[in-house]
């Protein structure tokens, strides 16, 4: 581990103290996990504290862990992962928070802290159905007007639920249940740990 990342981890541990649920370094990236209750507070500290100074929210995304490792996942289902950048300190950080309720995932909104969170949170709401408390304008963003469901959830089929066609009799576009069969050319396989070990080329 390079000294830069050590310094960052050290500062995070010092500043955030017991708000840290876990702090890991893997593949040269630091991942900080916090509880949903402290999420907004931690975000504000990350931006404003002189030892951290994460001025930019580069990315915010939802993740649905329900199908992880063919059902090996034991934790909460929905998470939000933010990628932060500090332009002044040249640091990167991944901030992850799990939504406490699987059936009705709600998290605090970061729009006030980083304005760029606005569309990212709309996207996470649209695709995963994660709600953000305090978001000024939580509308769908990528899917069609009047779309039903949250397509990036793992239980949403890749071909969707409805298809659209022009009906010459009604003389308008109509929606109907999908008629194509779902198919999978290459099955998804999780092998045992040592299989295909890249290191042994």
């Amino acid at each position: 581990m390079s000294t830069r990342l050590e310094t960052l981890c050290h500062n995070l541990q010092n500043v955030l103290g017991d708000h840290v649920v876990s702090l890991k370094t893997a593949l040269g990236e630091v991942t900080l996990e916090v509880a949903a209750g402290h999420y907004l507070e931690v975000a504000r500290t990350l931006r404003d504290h002189p030892d951290l100074r994460f001025e930019q929210l580069i990315d915010l995304t939802g993740v649905d862990y329900s199908a992880w490792g063919d059902g090996a996942w034991a934790g909460r289902r929905f998470a939000v992962a933010c990628h932060l950048t500090s332009v002044s300190r040249n640091w990167r950080l991944r901030l992850r928070v799990f939504a406490p309720d699987d059936g009705f995932p709600v998290l605090a909104s970061l729009v006030e802290v980083w304005n760029s969170a606005n569309w990212y949170e709309r996207e996470a709401f649209d695709l995963f159905g994660i709600l953000f408390e305090g978001h000024p304008d939580l509308r769908r963003i990528l899917t069609d007007y009047g779309f039903v469901g949250h397509p990036f959830r793992k239980d949403f089929p890749i071909s969707g639920h409805v298809e659209m066609r022009y009906d010459p009799e009604q003389r308008r576009v109509v929606y109907q249940p999908v008629t194509i069969e779902p198919r999978e050319n290459t099955p998804r396989i999780v092998r045992e740990d040592s299989y295909g070990d890249v290191g042994h080329g």
Binding site: D64, G69, A81, T186, R188, R191, D193
Partner: peptide, 14 residues
């Protein structure tokens, strides 16, 4: 940026 999550399968998890 590309944020890739793998669970060890032959396809990306996310």
């Amino acid at each position: 940026g590309v944020y890739a999550i793998s669970d060890g399968a032959n396809k990306p998890y996310r």
